[in-house]
Structures are given as C-alpha cells and as structure tokens.
C-alpha cells in the first residue's frame, strides 16, 4: 500500500500563533514555536515533521493563509 508523506511550510512572519492549525492537525505534527516572529507571536511550525501526512487540515482552518502544504506518495 502506498504511503503518503507530507510537509507544511509556514510563513512565520504572517502567522499570528492562533493555535487553530495545531488543534486541527490529526497527527500532532504542528506546534507553536518557542521563538517569536517580529510581531511577537509564537508562530506555528512542524514539531514532528516525520508524522505529517499532507492532509491540508491546517491550511483550511488557517485564518491568515500562511500555510502551504506538500504531499508525496511513496511506495
């Protein structure tokens, strides 16, 4: 069975750290960074990059459209 692996890229400067993507992630991939961006927000990042399946849940609920999602099928 083909396995799906994914990755997300968060635009850290646009992210406002609202946490909605973190709770919407079914695989606990995302988390809020301890660092802050130039506006002082704890931006979202891939805490567990190996668990991402590229489901796009995070990008659907993101109010600031700062998440780009990539998905790849591997045999």
């Amino acid at each position: 069975m083909a396995k799906v692996i994914g990755a997300v890229v968060v635009d850290a400067e646009v992210c406002k750290g609202c946490n909605l993507c973190v709770v919407s992630c079914p695989t606990q991939t995302l988390g809020l960074n301890r660092d802050v961006n130039s506006k002082g927000y704890h931006y979202s990042y891939m805490e567990n990059p190996e668990s991402c399946i590229g489901c796009s849940n995070c990008s659907s609920v993101c109010p600031d459209s700062c998440i780009t999602v990539y998905r790849l099928k591997v045999e």
Binding site: G6, S59, R71, L72
Partner: peptide, 11 residues
C-alpha cells in the same frame, strides 16, 4: 517533499 509538483495547497 517540498517541491512544486507535490504542492496540494497554497494561498
């Protein structure tokens, strides 16, 4: 993974 051909969602 992060390649243009694998992109499934963008702004």
């Amino acid at each position: 993974i992060i390649r243009p051909e694998n992109q499934v969602y963008k702004k």
